[in-house]
Design a protein around this nucleic acid. Sequence first.
DNA 1: CGCTCACTTGAAGCAAATCAATTAGTGTGG
DNA 2: CCACACTAATTGATTTGCTTCAAGTGAGCG
Lengths: 256, 256
Amino acid sequence: MTTKPIKLSTLKTACKSCKLHDLCLPLGLDLGDMDKLDNIIKRRKPLQKGEFLFQTGNKFTSIYAVRSGSIKTYTESEQGDEQITGLYLPGELLGLDAIHNYEHPCSAIALETTSLCEIPFEILEELSESVPNLHHQLYRIMSKEIASDQTLLMLIAQKNAEEKLAAFLINLSTRLKLRNFSETEFHLSMSRKDIGNYLGLTIETISRTFSRFQSEGLLTTQRKYVHILDLRKLKAIAGMADDCAHHNEPSDSAVN
Amino acid sequence: MTTKPIKLSTLKTACKSCKLHDLCLPLGLDLGDMDKLDNIIKRRKPLQKGEFLFQTGNKFTSIYAVRSGSIKTYTESEQGDEQITGLYLPGELLGLDAIHNYEHPCSAIALETTSLCEIPFEILEELSESVPNLHHQLYRIMSKEIASDQTLLMLIAQKNAEEKLAAFLINLSTRLKLRNFSETEFHLSMSRKDIGNYLGLTIETISRTFSRFQSEGLLTTQRKYVHILDLRKLKAIAGMADDCAHHNEPSDSAVN
DNA sequence: CGCTCACTTGAAGCAAATCAATTAGTGTGG
DNA sequence: CCACACTAATTGATTTGCTTCAAGTGAGCG
């Protein structure tokens, strides 16, 4: 939980020059406002795989933007079973669910080496008084999170194993494309077990479904590496008509 | 979608005197600020059962607070299957998921005769510039919605039929208690079918589970009327230890 | 009164969970 | 560099909780 800023070289990377800024909080801010935002953002030492960003019950002080790598969030019930509630990729904000009672309702852990921007919330609120657009931006981001949680809900409640996994992969593919990564070849940062948990399935079902997709020629996998061969068909299984693909406009819609 | 204000008698009921105001948006505002808020709130003609408040794709202009009755929200997939995403009781706000692209991602329909406050969002944002607390309040409400969506997710993904229904009932009970209704006797505004859809189960499973609860002496039902006989045991099934019950403090935690 | 709609109850079928065994990577220390 | 343990993933066999199909029942209503 150290919050000290890191090497100068990293400090230079400000919102203005960050290639993620049109996915992230500064979206829609002008250069002057972005400077102000830059002044309150702390860059943290990158987290190593398995390190916690925060844990359930921690006091809420900041929201975080992923710069590189990925973070998963999960809640734990009293019986001890976990539910993964979110997967956050570069340009996405997390910690928003902690505002309402100043306490994190979930834990956040790095799935790989991950660097982040830390944005102290109180200071952000102060700053927002002089930069009205910021408020609006935050509303949009939170609103989007609500809407996408609902999509995930739908996915888990109504679909079968094939549809769930297909939707998960398509969602990932869409978000990666937005970040200028390949939409057909990527590395899963989640394990089969995590994917299963996220989708409400067991590891065996995930594995079998991957195998089936593979034997049907939809994709190839090699452990965590995935190569999608037939994006159209996979989208069809996921329940997204081809022509609806671009409905996933800048503010992506499906899963997380 | 008529927005005209109604009879004077109803108009008099302002936030200041509304007994729900400590559950709703004005929470934490002083009297002066509440007056300002009152000026922008429109009271709508009550909705009859089955009437839409808004539908998927409608342009977003306002958020709504339930004054009495109840509203359900649901999304529809391209295949046409529905997923109920929320049940809103008096004092709760809905429409927050539409901010991010100015379009409602779900439909909202009255489950019974329901009266609402309409709060035009643009005007609310303007007002918020002079009443900073309002922003904070909105953040809290949205944050709470995110957190509770995640709880619902957990419920649907990880629990079995009994646990789901028990958690649903306990959540309802807790929220009703907060509104000074009985926590053990109440009227379900949702049908068995809706409850099933909400929890990712079929109507038959809901019915059977109610029957089992009844034969175990946990509760009695008569159509939509529910009388909980053993709140403790029901909470235990729902996976909430007794001593954790009051964790559901003013900002309730479980389902919706 | 008879129609409909919401709910209940039973029996059969099935998708995914569980149990179990094997294989493939990953990391550790000698 | 190889043996060792350990974890992640795959695949098969079996079980099971929920769904589906089917046949009532009972409340509400024109």
